[in-house]
């Protein structure tokens, strides 16, 4: 049974146009399940999810989830169990995400944690345009796709040298790069940790009803600042950051902290 489902998936993957295996897996899962899209997300620090690969609609949902900091992949990853919402209109789990996902014409989602024992890497999320519960056969295929996704990610990353992210996974997560850059700028403007800066950026995007990506573009284009100072007039040597100041000359390489070597 499990073997048969995996074979079906592999066949469907083989029939997809050439591309990264992760993307083909998402497309194959969506095709077999009659879904609008699917996305593979990888978790960072236990909560933030970064996109690994996704079909178009799958990516939209993943970006929404990244912007709002809540959603099926986050819940599936954190709880470590399959999450199924047959109708987003009736959902109480994600009060902010559910209506936003419905605005993307999505009504049902299933998310599988990429999990083996205590290992948790992220989630594979499949979404449908129409409401409805999945039957056993469909859940079986979805579970199989989740297992295959875990195997794929592990296999792709296994041969990487230390500190290097597999290129395909890095490409998949590239959309968050400007958002992290903008978070860095905001952190410098306000003298707050970058994590706080990302939260502020998310809050602003939500309040303005704009996307995180658009807002990040504004920040990076210096058309939007988060501090009260007017305009980007900081000179090349300006250091508004009130953090620890070691002075203009750095000593020998300090490793990662101010502690003893």
């Amino acid at each position: 049974m499990v073997h048969a489902q995996r074979l079906k998936l592999l066949e469907a993957m083989a029939s997809q146009p050439t591309g990264p295996e992760t993307l083909r897996l998402c497309a194959a899962a969506a095709q077999l399940l009659g879904a609008a899209g699917a996305g593979l997300t990888i978790a960072v620090d236990g909560s933030t999810v970064e996109l690994g690969a996704a079909t178009a609609v799958g990516a939209q949902l993943a970006e929404l989830e990244f912007a709002l900091g809540q959603g099926p992949a986050t819940t599936a990853h954190q709880d470590g169990v399959l999450i199924e919402v047959p109708d987003l209109a009736l959902d109480r789990m994600w009060p902010v995400l559910a209506p936003a996902a419905m605005a993307l014409d999505l009504r049902a989602v299933v998310s599988l944690p990429l999990r083996r024992g205590s290992i948790r890497l992220g989630a594979l999320t499949v979404c449908w345009a129409d409401p409805g519960a999945r039957d056993d056969e469909e859940l079986g295929i979805a579970l199989s796709a989740g297992r295959l996704a875990l195997d794929l990610v592990l296999a792709m990353q296994t041969s990487q040298p230390d500190g290097q992210l597999d290129e395909i996974l890095a490409d998949g997560a590239a959309f968050t790069a400007p958002i992290h850059q903008a978070s860095g700028m905001i952190a410098a403007q306000l003298g707050v940790p970058v994590g706080t800066a990302l939260t502020l950026l998310r809050a602003r995007a939500f309040a303005d009803g704009s996307t995180l990506a658009d807002l990040a573009t504004e920040v990076l284009g210096r058309r939007l600042r988060f501090d009260t100072e007017p305009g980007p007039d900081a000179g090349p040597t300006a250091r508004p950051d009130p953090g620890p100041d070691i002075g203009p000359d750095i000593g020998p390489p300090t490793g990662s902290g101010p502690g003893p070597p």
Binding site: P178, Q181, G184, M185, A188, A234, D241
Partner: peptide, 10 residues
């Protein structure tokens, strides 16, 4: 990515 933003701003 974050460091790029921090340095760009400063």
């Amino acid at each position: 990515e974050q460091a790029k933003g921090v340095l760009a701003e400063r």
